[in-house]
Design a protein around this nucleic acid. Structure first.
Length: 214
DNA sequence: TCTCAGATTAACT
DNA sequence: GTTAATCTGAGAC
């Protein structure tokens, strides 16, 4: 419940912070996913720096019937078969972009869907992009998150371990992140896997379809 | 070539 | 709680 750090403290400059290294993502998606909670996404767009704390993720890999990469490589999912730590952006339901970061070890493909952020910096820009005011409604869902950070397929394949338009940096040192594991949302297969990870009690996780733990 | 389900969201009843 | 909006890949024929 209590947040140890205010948004202001969290929003300290990211310019001097190194992105997470490649080896962080060279593990199975299910290992990387919970470790991403509390980390920060940095998006540079049109001179603005947008920063958000990751509060909700889902893991997918090539042995997972619910994953896009389960049936092998296509033009759309090619990034998930490539080097870990890159952006995999896809269009969901023909309307909403969704942002993943690729992560895999032994398996040929895998990735982590970034589902929700706690906005920390560049909030006015996010509001303009979203057309909404409430902070809790800016990035509380994969489609909303992509809209708030101006993420579309022009960012497909971007290396998120290098400073650039989109990368991930460490969170607050020493911060304890309470993690909750639940079934993933919006899928019909492999629902027995508890591969959705959220920051427990965060008000910024995806909204109306949020469920109590199974 | 055609049809359908889908890692969603927001507006509407 | 229900539904429209609308693109893409997979599977059926």
């Amino acid at each position: 419940m209590s947040r140890s750090c205010s948004a202001m403290e969290n929003a300290v400059s990211t310019r001097t912070v190194e992105p997470l290294p490649r080896h962080f993502f060279r593990r199975s998606a299910a290992e990387v996913a919970p470790d991403l909670l509390g980390k920060r996404i940095v998006r540079s767009v049109a001179g603005a720096e947008l920063v958000g704390r990751i509060v909700e993720v889902e893991a997918y890999d090539s042995e997972d019937p619910a994953s896009h990469c389960f049936r092998g490589m296509t033009d759309r999912n090619r990034a998930m078969f490539g080097e870990p730590g890159h952006a995999y952006v896809y269009l969901s339901h023909g309307l909403h972009h969704c942002l993943n970061v690729t992560a895999r070890a032994e398996l040929p493909a895998g990735g982590v869907l970034i589902r929700a952020l706690e906005p920390l910096s560049g909030i006015d820009t996010m509001r303009a992009l979203r057309g909404r005011h409430a902070i809790a409604d800016l990035a509380s869902g994969p489609g909303k998150l992509a809209q708030a950070l101006a993420v579309d397929r022009t960012l497909y394949g971007v290396d998120m371990t290098q400073p650039g338009p989109l990368f991930i940096v460490e969170g607050v040192a020493g911060e304890e992140v309470p993690i909750e594991a639940t079934p993933r949302i919006g899928i019909s297969r492999a629902t027995e896997r508890l591969w959705r990870f959220t920051v427990a009690d965060s008000p910024f996780v995806s909204g109306p379809r949020r469920r109590a733990k199974a």
